[in-house]
Design a protein around this nucleic acid. Sequence first.
DNA 1: TGCCGCTATGGCCATATAGCCATGGATGCG
DNA 2: CGCATCCATGGCTATATGGCCATAGCGGCA
Lengths: 108, 108
Amino acid sequence: MKAKPRQLYEARAKVAKALAHPSRLLMLDALAEKEMCVCDLTDIVGADQSTVSKHLAVLKNAGIVADRKEGVMIFYSLKVACLRGFWSCVEGVLMQNLKEQQAVMRSS
Amino acid sequence: MKAKPRQLYEARAKVAKALAHPSRLLMLDALAEKEMCVCDLTDIVGADQSTVSKHLAVLKNAGIVADRKEGVMIFYSLKVACLRGFWSCVEGVLMQNLKEQQAVMRSS
DNA sequence: TGCCGCTATGGCCATATAGCCATGGATGCG
DNA sequence: CGCATCCATGGCTATATGGCCATAGCGGCA
């Protein structure tokens, strides 16, 4: 441990905050397949284009995605490769939590 | 991919939101060492006890930590083992981003 | 029983976020 | 040039969050 600087936790929090929205998580899942333009992601998310654009700005600012300009369109791509494994691990824990809850329900 | 339900992303977002605060990340880092009572964590974080208690409630509600009562004190412990590896991976990407930024600075 | 220490909760205010609409800037095309 | 398309930004409101203070609940201990 050794007293990591507060700055480190603020940097991590910035990343976590960027992940803390269902629409952004959906976009990241889509980008895990292939790079996409804002219009693609707007269709997928089903929100206003300006809303999607702001979500993408958050992800970009956090360093999670990269953007590439091609003509009129801007393609976003995933920069962080460890998301899939992370969610898989987290969901494993959540499933276990559910099981334990159910066990408590039955025994009471 | 195949159209995961919106519910999944809301569940993930709940976890991400729980991670999205420097004080909570600091607590999780501390809990990675050993379980701790609220008083320990209050000292480490340096905020009001009620604030720390609320932070812990968020982490518990997200299923990231567990709590155990022992006499008057309540000990919290980490339930998710994949945090260390995740942050290590993320910070690798962020470092790379920094390097690229510096390269752009030099070349301009 | 009565007091004290450890946690949790409610109240309150300041700030941040998400959403949409409207608009602006940039690029390509005829 | 004039227009259309794609994306980003500003304005606005509603809601959520974080912080502290005050206080309540709970378990131990004399």
